[in-house]
Design a binder for these strands. Structure first.
Length: 316
DNA sequence: TGCCCCCTGCAG
DNA sequence: CTGCAGGGGGCA
């Protein structure tokens, strides 16, 4: 499901809702979805921040009372979360009796079968869920709000780890540059491409150790705007190609964030709403439909063992 | 540096 | 029924 824009959407939404909240309980319904330190280590900690690195989510926790800057860095814990293909993080405000919108956690149906995720929770796809209370508030039901980690295919994970050890984490330690980092320049990408002359350009930009956050949708989109056919080999990519590609990557990711991500399938905002980027895609999921630039039907092939969409006329 | 695999559910 | 799905780890 999630690439950088979808994860960014989730992170921004969660920041608004859970920063400053205290962890009251964590329920692990699927053992294999949770790893690292035992759950009880996090009970009573406050959510200090919610951030993103590539497609990974970091919820930093702090002990109440030692939240001053830099004071608890050595022993703070973080919840690391990866949504992989079908993960969701859905936040539900305190249940108010008589509330029709949230009573019994009943929510709107958004018209997709996988929305059993958001209709009633915990759902059959909920793997881990959290009960939170506002800092300083009584821990009664009246103030308790909920965060649900749903994951149909169970590829995703939640991991409780010391903040200081994130840099050693199997996933986080391998990530390359953020696409919006000032060091992600045409020169940087061109050099990297020179090291992989025999790889498809698509495979290169999907490599998270190089630049992180681009997945199957946004790689197809970026290559379209850069006018580059996804099967082109590294050795054939010019400096001019690279310059266009770097701006195209930033452009499509920015657009994806603007529209709260692509909800072709299971992506939802923490409030349970769909993203809208699926309505603005140039090539992804548009097999047989006319190119938005030249009307030529979009082609779907397989590149780097991923479904790959491109315009045979605009992309050379 | 490519493939198979993890898993569930949907479209064709 | 088969193949495919927005990710990435482990293995030649």
């Amino acid at each position: 499901m999630p690439e950088l824009p979808e994860v960014e959407t989730v992170v921004r939404g969660l920041s608004r809702h859970i920063v400053g909240q205290k962890i009251k309980t964590i329920h692990v319904l699927t053992k294999t979805s949770f790893s690292g330190l035992p759950v009880h280590k996090s009970i009573g900690l406050l959510v200090k921040s919610v951030s993103r690195r590539g497609k990974g989510i970091i919820i930093e926790l702090a002990k109440p009372g030692v939240a001053r800057k830099g004071e608890d860095g050595s022993n703070s814990l973080s919840l690391l979360i990866h949504l992989k293909m079908t993960g969701q993080l859905i936040w539900v405000p305190p249940i108010r009796r008589r509330s029709k919108s949230y009573g019994g956690h009943q929510r709107l149906n958004f018209g997709h079968p996988t929305d059993d995720f958001t209709n009633s929770m915990p759902s059959r796809h909920t793997r881990v869920w959290f009960e939170l209370t506002p800092k300083g508030a009584p821990s009664g039901q009246r103030h308790t709000n909920y965060l649900y980690f749903n994951d149909m295919r169970r590829f995703g994970w939640v991991k409780l780890t010391p903040t200081a050890e994130i840099s050693k984490d199997k996933f986080f330690s391998k990530l390359g540059l953020e696409p919006f980092d000032k060091n992600f320049t045409p020169a940087f990408l061109y050099t990297a491409i020179q090291h992989r002359p025999k790889s498809n350009i698509k495979a290169i930009i999907l490599d998270q150790t190089l630049v992180t956050g681009i997945g199957n949708i946004y790689s197809d989109e970026a290559l379209f705007y850069a006018g580059i056919k996804p099967t082109r080999l590294g050795r054939s990519i010019t400096k001019a190609n690279t310059t266009k590609l770097v701006s195209a990557i930033k452009k499509v990711l920015t657009k994806g964030i603007k529209y709260s991500g692509t909800s072709i399938n299971t992506h939802r905002t923490p409030e349970g709403s769909m993203g809208q980027m699926q309505n603005y895609l140039a090539v992804y999921d548009r097999k047989g439909q006319p190119c938005r630039k030249c009307k030529t039907p979009i082609i779907k092939i397989r590149v780097a063992s991923r479904g790959t969409h491109y315009c045979p006329s605009c992309q050379l």
